[in-house]
C-alpha cells in the first residue's frame, strides 16, 4: 500500500458518498472501484491464541458473501476486523480502496488512524449484531435517527423522515414510537438493519443476524436481507441459514480454525464441497 494509492480512493469515497443510490457507484477509478473489500493475509491474535491465521478475501461491489464455519473458527473476529473493532496484527484490510483503521507513515509503516478518521470510515460500513444492540432508552425511530443526526449532522426533521422511510422499508411502520423492550426479536433485528441503513453504508456486515431469534421470526429478517441484496447492497453475512445462502449468496466462504478453507457458489459448496472440513461441518449442520 503506497501513499498514492490510499489517496486516490479517498476522493472516490467522498464522491460516492454524495450519491445515496446503492447502484452504479463505480465512478471511473478502474479495477479498484469494483472491489469494495480487500483483505490480504489478515492475522489476529488474542494473547497467545492466534484466531485469524492469514485470511484473504476480496468482495465485489454488490456482492453477497455468506461466511460459514464452526463456532470459534474466527468468523466474528474477521467481521470485526473489517470495521476496525479489532486491531489486526499482520496483513491489511481496505474498504473502497482505503486502508481501514491504519495509515501508512513516512517510513512505510502502518500506524493506527485517529479516532475521528476511524469513525468516518465506520460510518460507511453497517454492522448488524447477533444480539441487535438497540439503544434500550430510545424508540425504534430514535434508534434509527441518532446516527444520521449526530454523525451526518442532519436536522431532526430530516432524520425522522429518513427514519420513518427506513422503518417502513423493513415493515415496521406501526412501531415508530415503540421501545426495544416492547419489540419481538425479529422486529428488533429489523430496526437494527434500518439503523445501519440510515447511514447509507456502502457495505453491511451481518454477524449471525438470525441466530438469536425464535424460528418463526427468522423469515422476516431474512426477507429484509434478501430485498437489500436485490437492491445491490454489498453484504458479508455470517449465517448458517442454508436456504438464504442458496438463494441470495453470490459466494459462500467456509472458514475453519482461522483460515478460509474453500469458497465458491452456494451450490458448489453445499452440494459438492471440495474440502473434507467443509463436508464434516455441513454434515453436522444438517
Amino acid at each position: 500500500m503506497t501513499e498514492a494509492s490510499s489517496d486516490v480512493p479517498t476522493r472516490a469515497t467522498a464522491a460516492s458518498a454524495a450519491t445515496a443510490s446503492t447502484t452504479d457507484r463505480a465512478d471511473g477509478n478502474g479495477a479498484q472501484a469494483t472491489s469494495i473489500v480487500e483483505a490480504v493475509d489478515v492475522h489476529k491474535r488474542f494473547g497467545s491464541l492466534e484466531v485469524l491465521k492469514g485470511v484473504s478475501l476480496s468482495v465485489e461491489r454488490g456482492e453477497v458473501v455468506v461466511l460459514i464455519g464452526p463456532s470459534g473458527s474466527g468468523k466474528t473476529t474477521f467481521l470485526r476486523c473489517i470495521n476496525h473493532f479489532e486491531k489486526i496484527d499482520q496483513g491489511r484490510i481496505s474498504v473502497n480502496g482505503r486502508l481501514i483503521g491504519y495509515r501508512v507513515d513516512a517510513k512505510g509503516n502502518l500506524r493506527e488512524e485517529r479516532a475521528a478518521e476511524i469513525a468516518r470510515q465506520r460510518a460507511e460500513i453497517g454492522f448488524v449484531f447477533q444480539h441487535f444492540n438497540l439503544y434500550p432508552n430510545k424508540t425504534a425511530l430514535e434508534n434509527v435517527c441518532l446516527g444520521p443526526r449526530k454523525v451526518r449532522k442532519i436536522s431532526r426533521d430530516e432524520a425522522e423522515e429518513l427514519g420513518r422511510r427506513l422503518l417502513q422499508r423493513v415493515g415496521l411502520e406501526a412501531k415508530f414510537d415503540v421501545h426495544p423492550a416492547q419489540l419481538s426479536g425479529g422486529q428488533k433485528q429489523r430496526v437494527a438493519i434500518a439503523r445501519a441503513l440510515a447511514m447509507q453504508p456502502k457495505l453491511i456486515l451481518f454477524d449471525e443476524p438470525t441466530s438469536a431469534l425464535d424460528p418463526e421470526m427468522i423469515g422476516e429478517v431474512l426477507a429484509v436481507m434478501k430485498s437489500l441484496a436485490a437492491e445491490g447492497m454489498t453484504m458479508i453475512v455470517v449465517s448458517h441459514e442454508m436456504g438464504f445462502a442458496r438463494e441470495v449468496a453470490d459466494r459462500v466462504v467456509m472458514m475453519d480454525d482461522g483460515v478460509l478453507v474453500e469458497e465458491g457458489p452456494p451450490r458448489q459448496i453445499f452440494d459438492h464441497p471440495a474440502h473434507e472440513r467443509t463436508r464434516a461441518f455441513l454434515a453436522k449442520l444438517l
Binding site: 469513525a119 465506520r122 454492522f127 444480539h131 444492540n133 438497540l134 439503544y135 441518532l146 454523525v151 447511514m199
Partner: peptide, 15 residues
C-alpha cells in the same frame, strides 16, 4: 454492545 452499536454508525468514542 451499546458502545459498539454507536461506533458502528460512525460515532467517535466521545460522541
Amino acid at each position: 454492545g451499546q458502545l459498539e452499536a454507536a461506533l458502528s454508525t460512525g460515532m467517535t468514542p466521545m460522541q
